Amino acid sequence: MTQETSSPQKALITGASSGIGATYADRLARRGMDLVLVARNATRLGTLADRLRAQTGVRIEVLPADLTLEADLSVVQRRLEEGDVTMLVNNAGMALKGGLLDASSDDLTRIIALNVLAPTRLAASAGKTFAARGQGAIVNLGSVLSLAPEMLDGVYSGTKAYVLNLSQSMTAQLKGRGVFVQVVLPGATRTEIWERSGNDVNALPPEMVMGVDELVDAALVGFDRGEDVTIPPLQDDAPFREMTSVRLAMMPLLSTNAAAPRYRGA
């Protein structure tokens, strides 16, 4: 059975006012799902909600929130815990201009709050609620940079590596409890995150940048297939599967009562 045929009936989407989040809202509304749209920009949320209501007839709730603020994050957590939401799309995120040595303390605090703390707390609330009901889905938006820490900004890629780690752990923990967890790893995608962080997506070769419609449509194909990790730009997933196989084979060897011989004194 595909994820589509057992699709939840109401999705809460963070970062829903533009880009990936707004495209998920469009696609899920066209699948007949009611929506709870979360983002800072209430005006944009309202415009999107009005359009999707007119085009699809689904019920849409607008929930303006800044997920870097404790009070707002708690409101969204409580909304998930009410029990009628059955799909979480953990999409809200930000990037930095430059890296660790270029960012201010406030920038570093904000990116960790939005890219790590917020999705963790929302995933925890959704996971507990869905597991108690025995049904639900969590989609976490990561990045291919989680697999390439040497590239670009290690802070951003580090937050996305965390999202990948969290998602894979949740998949293992929630297996058999009716909760499906998917992590999506986009490559460079044409969204407003570039402009907001002061970066220029047009500086990249066009063949490296995916359109947001292409990205979300591919991610939903992965969702329907029940993929726990979906990498839309990866043409052949054999290297990723091989890497995963090696990692899993190494797991029993990672904790022993003696240091490896290569670390013992001569």
Rank of each mutant, 00 (worst) to 15 (best):
M1H: 12
T2Y: 06
E4A: 14
P8K: 09
K10I: 14
K10L: 12
T14P: 12
G15Q: 04
A16L: 05
S17V: 13
G19C: 13
I20K: 02
A22W: 11
D26V: 04
R31I: 05
G32N: 09
M33K: 07
L35W: 06
A39F: 09
A42D: 15
T43N: 12
R44W: 06
G46W: 01
D50W: 03
R53A: 12
A54E: 14
Q55F: 00
T56C: 11
T56D: 05
R59N: 11
I60W: 02
D66W: 08
T68L: 03
A71K: 12
A71Y: 00
L73V: 05
V75T: 14
V76I: 09
Q77F: 01
R78Q: 14
R79H: 10
L80F: 08
E81Q: 13
M87W: 05
L88Q: 03
L88E: 02
N90R: 04
L96G: 03
L96A: 06
G99V: 10
G99P: 07
S105H: 15
D106E: 15
D107Y: 03
L108A: 14
L108F: 10
T109S: 15
T109I: 09
R110F: 08
A113Y: 15
V116R: 07
L117E: 06
R121N: 03
L122G: 01
A123I: 08
A123W: 08
S125P: 06
A126W: 01
T129C: 14
R133P: 02
Q135V: 00
Q135M: 08
G136N: 05
I138L: 04
V139E: 04
S143P: 02
V144M: 15
V144R: 13
L147Y: 03
L147A: 07
P149H: 02
Y156P: 03
Y162P: 02
V163R: 04
L164V: 07
S169R: 09
M170D: 07
T171N: 01
A172T: 08
A172W: 03
L174W: 12
L174A: 07
V179T: 08
V184H: 10
L185M: 07
G187H: 12
A188V: 06
A188I: 05
T189S: 03
T189K: 02
R190T: 01
R190L: 04
E192L: 01
E195M: 00
E195F: 00
R196G: 12
G198L: 08
L204Y: 04
P205D: 09
P206A: 11
M208E: 07
M210V: 01
E214Q: 14
V216G: 04
V216S: 03
A218D: 05
L220T: 01
L220Y: 06
G222H: 07
R225K: 14
D228T: 11
I231A: 15
L234T: 14
D237G: 06
A238K: 15
P239H: 10
M243E: 11
L248Y: 12
M250V: 11
L254H: 07
L254T: 11
N257S: 14
A258R: 15
A259T: 10
R262H: 09
R262T: 14
R262P: 00
Y263V: 08
R264N: 01
R264W: 01
G265N: 10
